[in-house]
Amino acid sequence: MHILMVGTGGIGAYYGARLQHAGHKVVFVARGMHLKAIQEQGLKVTHPTLQFHQQVTICDEVELHQTYPAHEFDLIILTIKAGATAQWRNSWKNWLTATDTKTPILSLQNGVDNERLIAEVVGRERTIGGLAVRIGGHIVSPAVVEATGIAQIVMGYWPNHSQNPPPAALTHWQTDFQTAGIPTFVTADIQYELWRKLLINNGVNPLSALTRLDTRTLTSHPTYGHTVYQLMQETAQAARADGVAMSQGDVDEMFNLIKSFDAIKTSMLVDREQGRPLELAAISGAVLERHQRLGTQAPVTALVSALLEQGL
C-alpha cells in the first residue's frame, strides 16, 4: 500500500514505522524541529516488540501538496490532535477533493467528532472511524518516539455499516495491518466503539492531567477511582445525544479494562507536562456539549474541566 501518515507524533510514528517495516510505502507529514531532525537523522521508534531506526519519506504539508496528488495514496491516516481537525480539513479541502480523488481517510484520534468533520468535506463514503487502543506513544526528543502497549486498531466506516457486510477495502487493510504486526479489528458500528473509548478518555485523561497521576494510581485509589467511574457514567449518559446506547455493562467493562492496564501516562498528562494545549474540548467538551443538548447535568466532568481550564 501507499499510505500517507498525517501526524508523526507518538501514535502516527509508531503505526507508520510498523507499516514501513512491513514493506509498505509510507509518506509522513510533520513540522518544526521534529520534522527537521527526522530528515537529518531518520525516525527512531522503540517499542517492546519493535526497534525501528530508518530514513523515512517525510515533509511538511506545503511540500506534500506540491509533490503528491491525494489520489496517489491508497489510504490517508490522520493522527493529529482532535482540536486541530476542523482547521486541517478546511486548509486541506482543495487537495483532498481534487478531481479523481477517492482516497479514504482513517481517523485515529481522540474524541467522537473528528469523523463528522471529515465527512463534511470528503463524504461518508471516504470517512473511516478508528481507534488506537491500548497504546501509549510519545515524542521523547525530536526524531525519537517511545511506544508501549498492544497497540490495536479498531476501524469501520462512519457512522456504521451495520446493515451491510464490511466493505472489501476494510478487510484488505485489516489483513495488511495484521501482517505488519498491528492487531486490527473491523466493526460494523464504529460510532459505538468511539463512545466506548470516550468512556476511558473522559474517565482518566482530564483527571490524570489535573492530579498528575498515571492510570493505575488513579483507578486503584479509593477516591480517585470512584471519580473515574463517575466520569465514565456521565460519558455514557451523554452518548444518548448521538443516538448511541451505552449500558451500565459498558461502563463496568471499560472501567475494569483501564484498571487492568499497566500504569500509563495519559496523552493529556504528557501534553500538560510539556506545556502543550490539552484535548479538553474533544474529550470533556464533547460530553458537556451533549449533556447541554439533552438538558442534563455532568457535574464531575464540569468540575474537572473547569479546574484544568483555570490552570490548577
Rank of each mutant, 00 (worst) to 15 (best):
G7T: 08
N256W: 01
T103P: 00
H21C: 09
E72M: 05
I200Q: 03
P48S: 09
T217E: 07
K81E: 13
T219E: 00
T184E: 05
Q310P: 08
M268R: 02
N110C: 02
T85S: 06
Y14V: 03
Q20F: 09
S91D: 11
A84W: 09
P166D: 00
G156V: 03
V154A: 03
S162I: 10
A17R: 01
G156A: 06
L210R: 04
L307F: 13
E125Y: 10
G83R: 09
I258C: 11
I118G: 00
Q163I: 03
A302Y: 04
R212L: 13
G42E: 07
Q51F: 08
L106E: 00
D250E: 03
R31D: 10
D113V: 07
E253S: 09
Q230N: 08
V56L: 14
A168R: 08
H71V: 12
Y15G: 06
A37F: 15
L207E: 00
V287G: 03
K81C: 14
I150V: 15
I264S: 11
E120W: 07
M5F: 12
D189T: 06
Q163W: 06
M1G: 05
A169N: 09
L278A: 02
Q20G: 08
G295C: 14
Q178R: 12
Q66K: 15
I153Q: 00
G9I: 06
W92C: 10
I283W: 02
H2Q: 14
I105A: 00
L303D: 06
A241G: 14
V133S: 05
S91F: 02
T46K: 12
T148M: 11
S208F: 02
S284E: 08
A37V: 14
T235H: 10
G12A: 04
F28W: 11
L218M: 04
V204A: 01
L294P: 09
A84V: 13
Q55G: 07
R89I: 15
Y14I: 01
I139C: 05
A37S: 15
A132R: 01
L117Y: 10
E120Q: 15
G137A: 14
T57V: 14
T67Q: 14
R116W: 07
E40Y: 04
A306N: 13
K81F: 12
L96D: 04
V204T: 05
L199T: 03
L19F: 03
A298K: 05
M232Y: 06
G42W: 02
T227F: 06
